[in-house]
Simulated assay, not measured.
Amino acid sequence: MSLNSEIFSSITTIPKSYWSQLGCEDNIYYTPEFLKAFEFANKGIDFNYIFILRDQIPVAFANTQRISIGIETITKNTRMPSLTRQLVNTIFRHRNLHVLFCGNIFLSGEYGIFLKENQDKTTAFNAIARALGLLSKNTRKLHTLFIKDFENDSLHITNLLHLYDYASMQVEPNMIIYLKPEWQTFNDYKSDLKSKYRIKANKADAKSKPLEVQLFSKNDIITHKNELQDLYQNTIDNADFNAQILNLETYIHLKETFKEAFLVQGYFLKNKLVGFLSAMKNGTHLDAHFIGIDYSKNNTYAIYPRILNDYVRLGISTNSSQINLGRTASEIKSTLGAQPKPLTCYCKHKRYLPNKILKSFIKNVRIKTYKQHQPYK
């Protein structure tokens, strides 16, 4: 029996039976409640949800978001002569690139496509690729499709996107700390660090000692929402690349729905919020989400190094088996023991000739190199 697709433009219109039949709800990131929080709080994004069905039973799922990105956001992360970059930025300075992302643009990792167990996953993925083509064809204001983030174990399936004229590219890896069961406290973890890295962790805690740390309730997030948004904006302004700014109204919905599984922790200096971290407990994994920092206080009070220490503390206290610290700042994360997990993305222009140009453009994209530390004894 052939596969067919259904595409929904709102989470509220999806039949509830689809989720249970697909069997994806053990993973928080594929629950309608999680996806709804992002859709409801981020009105400027066009969301779509693709279901692949066999005999009217779902066998695969993909979620997409359509956004616009300024050309400078892209060129500053592409290896090219500076004069060429200036020329491209000048020519296209008043134009945004409209991109259809398959995957969650607010998460780093394989959280955009779900393939049901005991199915032919290659066939199901192929059906998703066709459905994305259909969605692209029916989306008028669109330039590019971008399918993100696949681990190496998935590439034997996802590389069939080359047959649909997509180009593949490696992006910065997720940085993962694998926690040992015998680490019951942060001191247990530090005892396994080499002296140099233990001193580094202790220094971050010492410099940040004046900070008051508070786990936020839903009401705390509501109270400090504007401050959280400003601090988050600081990190976005310092990032090399960010496709879209998250409305932190999302966090209110996530906290209300997932309670203790969703964590927001604030850092106060003399009653002023100067930093925060956020994280989601997903099964046995703890996933770092966005952070926010007052960079004018960061050097003096080691806010960012303290946040990294506290992710380890939270991972241990929640009995997690691993902590996904996400992308960026790979070297400093490796000083805590994080190991890289490579990720591959696929990109395609909607039209044939621009796609040929895009492919050569993508060949110039290079991920940053960094020193991978080995901090354990």
Rank of each mutant, 00 (worst) to 15 (best):
L160R: 08
N187L: 11
I176W: 07
N309A: 02
P340Y: 04
L107M: 12
L358D: 11
I52V: 03
F114I: 09
A329C: 14
R140N: 11
R351E: 15
S10A: 09
N187T: 14
A206P: 02
K371C: 15
F150G: 00
H349F: 11
K281R: 15
N298Q: 07
A129F: 06
T369E: 14
P81E: 15
T300L: 08
V274T: 03
Y197H: 10
F101V: 04
D26V: 07
R66F: 03
N27C: 08
I157V: 09
K207I: 06
F125D: 04
P181E: 09
D165M: 12
Q86C: 13
I28M: 07
A201T: 11
D205S: 13
F51N: 00
G326V: 01
A37V: 02
N187P: 07
I222A: 07
S108C: 11
D153A: 11
I221S: 01
T73V: 12
F101D: 00
K272F: 01
N364Q: 12
N42K: 06
C347Y: 09
A288P: 01
Q265H: 13
S217C: 01
Q214G: 04
N238T: 15
F276W: 00
E249Q: 15
L161S: 08
S334G: 09
A261Y: 05
V59K: 01
I367A: 05
V99F: 05
N355M: 13
Y376E: 10
Y164T: 08
T318A: 12
G266T: 00
K341R: 15
K272E: 14
V99T: 08
E331L: 10
